[in-house]
Design a protein around this nucleic acid. Structure first.
Lengths: 164, 164
DNA sequence: TAAGATTGATGAGTCAATCTTC
DNA sequence: GAAGATTGACTCATCAATCTTA
């Protein structure tokens, strides 16, 4: 059997003081959904999700470029990891680097046309997966309240992580 | 909740955009929350979250043991990755392996006393993080409906991933 | 001295191939 | 042949140290 066949079950069943917490379900749902999305991208011979994130962040940015640390924040990835990720994207021609004139310590990651094309090729597959695995099972109300809840958690975490 | 929210009911994100989808927030929230949990475990000089998952799965299991493939399903990890993970746990004395008599292809991962101790040391730190980052920001109702939603997604994904 | 980014070394994850047992 | 688990080779992630510019 290949390792691709996996992540299909949920055996979590909380049993103590977090018995009513949605946290275990949150972790499991994320793992299962993301791995299924990744499976579909791979099946379509497309790059992984992290690449999409970077390409999309650059696409939205002014002049299709971001400083490396801005990009790292945008895609929620560590600095050194992003350097390596950008290396791979660059060697595949999807991103290029440019010097930053006002602050020469910094460098820009710039989306290339090929990068933009790749994102457009990935999107239908990614969108279909999101719809089929996520959106189709939630009402508009549920989407809205889920977003609100997640947003709240995100803001709280930002405070908790950087108190000073 | 505002009254306007009640008017837009039952609208599945029918044809179009994922503009209202909670999916991006779902990905970001997971990344931020998990990395903060990992940061706290590391700060307390404790093993990473994946270790906790394995130790806890074994703790709950009959005779504190599971076959490798059962364990892989329980913690939502690929087979070969679990072999490596179990290797590390074993070399740290937290888990041991035993032959399985009824099916000698299979092997058990068994929780050691040291493993049980380690889980007990991790739990207060982990629990505090879950509470502070997650539970404290959700009402009981929100926890319940969040769990229900995530559970639904999980079941749908199981079907989508294994259609036959 | 600190911020921005990168690198080298090392640890962890993944895929395909393998071994054993059913 | 197929299931259960592991291994080898490779890719990717992470940490501390480094280089450059502010």
């Amino acid at each position: 059997m290949r390792d691709g066949d996996r992540l299909k079950k949920n055996r979590r069943s909380a049993s103590s003081s977090v018995a009513r917490s949605a946290w275990p379900a949150f972790l499991t749902a994320h793992a299962v959904l993301v791995s299924e999305v990744e499976r579909r991208l791979k099946e379509a011979e497309l790059p992984e999700l992290a690449w999409y994130d970077v390409l999309w962040a650059l696409e939205r940015a002014p002049k299709r470029r971001l400083r490396m640390h801005e990009l790292a924040d945008a895609v929620v990835v560590s600095r050194s990891n992003l350097t390596r990720l950008a290396d791979r994207l660059e060697s595949n021609g999807l991103v290029s680097r440019e010097r930053c004139d006002d602050d020469r310590r910094s460098s820009f990651a710039v989306l290339t046309d090929a990068g933009s094309e790749m994102r457009k090729r990935m999107w239908p597959v990614y969108r279909a997966a999101i719809e089929e695995l996520f959106d189709d099972h939630l009402s508009a109300d549920e989407q809205a309240s889920l977003r609100a809840v997640l947003q709240r958690l995100l803001e709280a975490a930002a405070k908790a992580a950087a108190p000073q």
